[in-house]
Every structure is written in structure tokens, then in C-alpha cells.
């Protein structure tokens, strides 16, 4: 744990409000908006809210960054699906796979998990493992420009969670 924890933390009203609304929305969706279901829904939302505050400490998200990230993610995952479908249907099976190490500039935590999951859905990249600060990815085509895309994702994710990127440490 690198972040310092105050003993007297202020009550995270913003997280409580946001998560409460989110969980209520999910319940409304699951129950098809049936009013009587809230007898079960309200306790369920409260329990989910309490456990979420324990499991995932309150954090700040940058909403304007999410608005930029979502179109990027949708267009790249569309591209990723088309790319892999083309390779699968192509008679010659055009693959040139390799495993590549990339130094990560994001610190360990939710942002990093989010980043490696995103990489899995982008064209031609699959995250394999993380050693120290080295991300190991599998690429479908080593001649593709996957490097700039990974760096771009890293920058997006750092803005989403409002976390500064660290300079890549020596290694490799």
C-alpha cells in the first residue's frame, strides 16, 4: 500500500451518492422497474453500497476523460474484432505472433487492472502477465504498431482515474 491512510477520513459523500445511484439503477434494471420489488431492492442496494466501500475504497474519477475514452474504446474494439475476424477467415491465416515486454508507467491498482483488461479488447494485443513494472503482452502481428496504442491506452487510463504516470524505471 503506497497511499497513506488518514485515521480520521472524511465521509466520502460523493462516492456514496454516486454508487448508491448506480446500484439503484442496476436494481431498477434487474427488476424491470416493478415498484413492489424495492422492498427487497433497498436493502440489497444498501448492502452492496456498504460492501463496495470496504472492497473498493472511494476514489475520484474524471468524468470528462471517460467521455473521451468511451468512443475511443468502442472504435478500437470494433477494429479489434474486425481484425481478428479477417485473420480467422483468411485462407493463408496471416499471423505473426510474438511476446513483447513493455515497461508500465501506471502504478499497481485498479487503474492498472483496468488497463490490462482494455488491452485484451484492442486490435491484436493480449496481456499475459506483469512482472514488477514490466507488462508482458502477446501480439497477433509483430509488424503492427501496437506500441503507440498501448502508450495511448496508458495515457487515457491515467486520465480516467486522475493518476499521474511515472517515468519508466530502468530495466529491460
Amino acid at each position: 500500500m503506497r497511499h497513506t491512510t488518514d485515521t480520521r477520513r472524511p465521509v466520502p459523500w460523493r462516492s456514496i451518492l454516486f454508487r448508491g445511484l448506480l446500484f439503484s439503477l442496476i436494481w431498477w434494471s434487474l427488476s424491470n422497474g416493478v415498484a413492489a420489488s424495492w422492498w427487497v431492492g433497498v436493502p440489497a442496494v444498501l448492502l452492496a453500497l456498504i460492501s463496495s466501500l470496504y472492497l473498493l475504497p472511494p476514489m475520484t474519477m474524471v468524468w470528462s476523460a471517460w467521455l473521451k475514452f468511451i468512443p475511443f474504446f468502442i472504435s478500437r474494439s470494433l477494429h479489434g474484432g474486425i481484425d481478428v475476424a479477417r485473420r480467422a477467415f483468411h485462407p493463408a491465416l496471416p499471423l505473426a505472433p510474438d511476446i513483447i515486454n513493455i515497461p508500465l508507467r501506471l502504478r499497481a491498482g485498479l487503474a492498472r487492472v483496468f488497463m490490462i483488461n482494455t488491452i485484451n479488447l484492442l486490435p491484436g494485443t493480449l496481456s499475459v502477465s506483469i512482472d514488477q513494472n514490466q507488462l508482458r503482452i502477446h501480439v497477433l502481428d509483430r509488424h503492427q504498431d501496437f506500441m503507440s496504442e498501448i502508450l495511448q491506452v496508458e495515457e487515457y487510463v491515467s486520465r480516467l482515474f486522475g493518476i499521474p504516470l511515472q517515468t519508466a524505471d530502468q530495466g529491460e
Binding site: S77, V84, A88, L93, G124, H138
Partner: peptide, 21 residues
């Protein structure tokens, strides 16, 4: 892709990306 791709890694590419889309 799952049937034609040669190893576990390339097959995972096919499953995650094409199926999610």
C-alpha cells in the same frame, strides 16, 4: 479462429475480441 488458430494465445485473441464484438 478458435478452431484454426495454432495455439492458446492466438485462440484467446479470437475468442475475446470477436465474441465480445
Amino acid at each position: 479462429g478458435l478452431l484454426r488458430f495454432p495455439d492458446v494465445y492466438t485462440r484467446l485473441h479470437a475468442l475475446t475480441k470477436a465474441d465480445n464484438l
